[in-house]
Each structure stands twice: as structure tokens, then as C-alpha cells.
Design a protein around this nucleic acid. Structure first.
Lengths: 137, 137
DNA sequence: ATAGATATATCGTAACACGATATTATTTCG
DNA sequence: CGAAATAATATCGTGTTACGATATATCTAT
């Protein structure tokens, strides 16, 4: 019972840390004039493993969203001149997503502050994870 | 430039891991008949540090929400018989939040699967964090 | 007792993700 | 080859949710 309570406190602490990070991230995105999800889209486009074709479907998978949600998100980003949408000439069903110059600028700016923030938060996140991992299975 | 690209890939990987965990969490909550935020409320009520008065304001702070959002969330949880809302007799402005028996059951059930899932995801999360932390400042 | 501070509550609104459904392009196979 | 099946993206309507603005209740200090 005592370990149960400890476990729950550890889980709660982990979620507080995550939430604080996400809140930071949302504010950083807003400060750059982006919606949080727009930032995530840019990040997943630019941060895909080398050689990946970045399509709607790929993004839907890695962001764990329905594809039509990604359609809408990518269109909002296109309208904001952050993302370019082109049809793959080899399979014209597929839409390939790339960053515009402005999208790259925004992402690099955001990535800098995120790296820095994560370097600060990493120790307590790792600690929380370690505590959870060491709880009785 | 190469390090920049690596950094972005590491950040993207970290976000993918986080997103996968959150997705798991949302589905687990849904399987128990809870909204994701309802689960978070239960967790932060039960997982507050020992001796904490769990009020609307406290939850607003740790969940990084406006207090009126917590009012609404806690009322939905009250309606679902997961949470009890009582006025602190010493300061009747404050609302104290506690779990009902049913809220405790749901939370324990969810905590079990979350602990297990986090034990699985912890290594790659820690790896991603470590890679970010080791990137050039 | 009253002004100001603190904590919670109410109301209207906008963003977002989803289900259901549709459209366009490619592949399969009879 | 051409129709049916499959795959990828697109459109539309909807419900939830968090928010800003504002209101109410309670406490504190003078």
C-alpha cells in the first residue's frame, strides 16, 4: 500500500514535469507566432530520419493523429507560409511536405530554446523515470 | 550545420516518444471510461506531496491550467462520481478535492498500466533526453 | 465595518481533433 | 485491357475543452 502511494506520487511528478515542458513549448511557439501543433509539424518534417519521404501519412503516424487532422494542420501551415505541399511525381496520391525558408527560420529558433530548456529539465525527468522504473513490477 | 540537423532529429525523436506515451495514456483512460484530463486530475489529487491541501488553485498550478478550467474539470469529475468537492471549513473560499472510492479504483487501475508502460518506454525516453543534453550548448 | 485581496464560479467563444464520407490515383487480376 | 480493390488525401459537420472576461463569495487588515 505504501509502495502504491509512492508509485502514484512518482507518476504524478513525472506528469507535472511533462506538463511543465509542454507548457513551455506552447508558450515558446506562441512567442514565435505559431500554434503548438504547427511547431510540432515543422519539427517532425525537419526531424524525420534521413531519407524519409515526409507525407501526410508519415506525419499522421509519428504525431499519432488521424490523417485528415494532418491535412488540416498542413494546410494551415501552408497558409502561414511555413510549409510547402507538393505532390510526389512518382505517386501523385502522396503529398510531400517541406519547410519554407520561413518555416526553417521559425523551427531553428524554437529548437534552440527547446534544447536549452530540455537540458535544464532533463535531470528531473530522468529522475522521475528512474523512480518509476525501479518501483516493484 | 550537421549538428543542427542532429539536434532537430533528437528533439523530434523525443517528441515522438512523448506523443506515443500520451497516446497510450489517452487510450488507457478511455478504456476505463475517463477523459484524459479526468485521469490527470485524479492523478494529481492522489499524487500530491504528503500533507498538501489539494485545492482548485493547487491543481491549476501543477496542471498548468487556469483555475476556471479546473473548476469545470472538477465538476465533470464530481458528476461522474470520481471526485468529491468540499469546502475547507477553515477557509470556506477554498474547495478541497478528494477521490471517491470509484475514483480511487479507476486511478489505481490506470496507474498499474502506466507504470508498466513507462518501464517499457523509459529507456528510449532517457536516451533521447541524454542525446539532447549532450548536444553542443 | 469596509476596502482590498484571494478563491472559486459562470458564460460565451474559438481552436482542434475526430467520425463519416468523398475524391483522386494506383495496383491487381480475371 | 478494364473493372474492382486498395491507398492517400480531402471535405464537412460535431463535440469537447481551455480560454478571456466577468461575477460572486469569503477572508484580512485596519
Amino acid at each position: 500500500m505504501t509502495t502504491e502511494r509512492d508509485d502514484i506520487q512518482h507518476l504524478a511528478k513525472f506528469r507535472r514535469e511533462i506538463r511543465r515542458f509542454l507548457q513551455f513549448s506552447e508558450q515558446a511557439a506562441a512567442a514565435t507566432g505559431l500554434q503548438p501543433q504547427q511547431h510540432q509539424l515543422l519539427l517532425q518534417i525537419a526531424g524525420a530520419p534521413n531519407g524519409t519521404q515526409v507525407t501526410i501519412g508519415y506525419i499522421a503516424e509519428v504525431m499519432v493523429l488521424r490523417h485528415h487532422t494532418v491535412v488540416e494542420l498542413s494546410k494551415r501551415c501552408e497558409a502561414a507560409d511555413l510549409v510547402r505541399r507538393t505532390h510526389d511525381p512518382d505517386d501523385r496520391r502522396c503529398v510531400v511536405l517541406e519547410l519554407t525558408a520561413q518555416g526553417q527560420r521559425a523551427l531553428h529558433q524554437l529548437s534552440d530554446v527547446h534544447s536549452q530548456q530540455l537540458r535544464e529539465l532533463a535531470p528531473s525527468l530522468i529522475l522521475a523515470l528512474t523512480q518509476i522504473r525501479n518501483s516493484k513490477p
